[in-house]
Nucleic acid binder design. Structure first.
Lengths: 119, 119
DNA sequence: CTAGAACCTGACACTGATGTCAGATTCAAG
DNA sequence: CTTGAATCTGACATCAGTGTCAGGTTCTAG
């Protein structure tokens, strides 16, 4: 599929999709004229990439991580190096702390919202 | 207490504490010489502010939100305007989606980490 | 009084994913 | 062939919290 459709289906801007390619996160074939041509699996991959960005990982880490993820079809997956595992473990702990923060902030918002509703 | 101690106790840089003041998130008395003098309650407030920043709220929203929070001592709290409640409700939904993303990303990391461990 | 630690203001840099625009090219339908 | 939509590359802007540095002032222990 072409970039417009992929953008529509993933809700990610064309700009970002091109950026992902520049960061070597997302490969695309090219038409004879040079237009990007994505496989169907790109949809899932883009969604995964977005989630990882949302979780605060940087391009570099995502790039290292992607080949180690088992595809939804159980396709080929590399084994993470000890170095990468250490990095990811740190990221994991950071995400844990972030989730805890988010939950507390959500409670704070709920308190304020509820106080206004009860008023 | 002074800014150095507050920074140490909250694990927030002095730079950020001064920034919070500029954003009207955190008030401080001044010594005759002009040094900031924080009340004990500043510790909790700074931690709250950090959590809200971590949750993706911007200074402006935090500034509007803070007076509506009930202090830990149940002190005086303003009631949020309908406009603010609408904003906060949106933020709340965004945080919900973000938490969901984070949980999925954490699972992704766990998969990769576990695969390497089992190897 | 004095020295050194702590603090002050103001300014500039950075980060890094994303928005946006311009000008050119390709694609696909009629 | 034509024409309008879609895509291409490249460049520049943005956001907002934080880091950092400079030059000066205040604080506090001895």
């Amino acid at each position: 599929m072409r970039i417009g459709e992929l953008a529509r289906r993933t809700n990610v801007s064309e700009r970002s999709l091109r950026y992902y390619e520049a960061q070597e996160l997302l490969a695309a074939d090219r038409t004879p004229g040079g237009h990007r041509d994505y496989p169907e699996a790109a949809v899932d991959r883009v969604i995964r990439i977005q989630e990882l960005y949302a979780a605060g990982l940087h391009s570099e880490k995502i790039r290292q991580l992607l080949p180690c993820m088992r595809d939804q079809d159980g396709g080929p997956s590399t084994i993470a190096t000890p170095r990468l595992v250490a990095d990811l473990t740190e990221e994991r702990e950071r995400i844990d702390r972030l989730i805890a923060d988010l939950v507390r902030s959500r409670e704070t918002l709920d308190d304020v919202i509820d106080a206004a509703r009860d008023h």
